[in-house]
Amino acid sequence: MMGWAGQPTWTVWIVMAVCMVAFWAVVIYLVAMMFRSDRVDGSGRGGQEPDPLRLLETRFARGEIDADEFAARQQMIVAGSPVLHDHSRKGTP
């Protein structure tokens, strides 16, 4: 890697330039990740509450509630009345 009389060759300069560009790319990426607003945990969303109808559809898709309960709760959500939690069924939160 050393040229005549201990001088670095052109390949050393290329390797150093590539490493410098890679270093700054990683630094910029990490800084951008610290300030991004679309995090999975929702901390960058400004405190928005999840949509109740979407949560209901998700629970139905997972099989946590049956079709009758889904329809009844969907009707309550659309009508604006509060959803009553039926804890007597096994497996529902």
Score class of each variant (00 low, 15 high):
79 A>W: 01
15 V>D: 04
71 A>E: 13
81 S>G: 06
38 D>T: 05
32 A>I: 05
51 D>V: 10
53 L>N: 07
59 R>S: 12
21 V>P: 04
74 Q>E: 13
56 L>M: 03
58 T>N: 14
74 Q>D: 02
76 M>R: 11
1 M>H: 10
42 G>M: 11
51 D>N: 14
1 M>R: 07
82 P>R: 12
47 G>M: 01
55 L>R: 09
83 V>Y: 02
81 S>A: 09
44 G>N: 11
42 G>R: 04
29 Y>E: 06
65 I>Q: 00
49 E>T: 06
67 A>T: 13
77 I>N: 00
13 W>E: 07
7 Q>L: 12
76 M>A: 12
49 E>I: 03
29 Y>R: 06
61 A>Y: 07
1 M>C: 08
19 C>V: 03
43 S>D: 11
26 V>S: 02
9 T>P: 00
53 L>V: 14
70 F>H: 08
40 V>F: 13
22 A>F: 05
5 A>I: 09
60 F>C: 03
66 D>A: 13
72 A>K: 04
79 A>I: 02
47 G>C: 01
12 V>F: 09
5 A>Y: 08
53 L>E: 15
25 A>E: 02
47 G>R: 00
41 D>K: 09
76 M>H: 04
25 A>Y: 06
30 L>C: 09
83 V>D: 15
48 Q>F: 11
88 S>V: 14
54 R>T: 11
27 V>S: 01
25 A>D: 08
24 W>H: 02
28 I>Q: 07
64 E>M: 04
48 Q>H: 12
35 F>T: 08
79 A>G: 09
60 F>L: 13
66 D>Q: 14
6 G>V: 09
62 R>L: 13
52 P>E: 07
77 I>S: 00
63 G>W: 01
92 T>P: 05
74 Q>H: 05
4 W>N: 14
25 A>F: 05
67 A>Y: 14
17 A>I: 10
76 M>N: 03
48 Q>M: 10
74 Q>K: 14
46 G>K: 11
67 A>S: 15
71 A>D: 12
40 V>D: 14
69 E>N: 14
82 P>Q: 11
57 E>H: 07
84 L>M: 12
18 V>S: 10
37 S>E: 03
22 A>Y: 03
17 A>E: 02
49 E>W: 05
90 K>A: 15
8 P>T: 04
28 I>Y: 05
65 I>N: 00
16 M>I: 05
15 V>G: 10
82 P>W: 04
11 T>H: 08
7 Q>T: 08
29 Y>P: 02
27 V>E: 02
87 H>W: 12
8 P>H: 07
42 G>V: 10
2 M>D: 15
20 M>K: 03
50 P>S: 04
91 G>V: 05
13 W>K: 08
60 F>Q: 01
1 M>Y: 07
43 S>R: 11
83 V>C: 13
67 A>V: 15
76 M>L: 11
27 V>M: 08
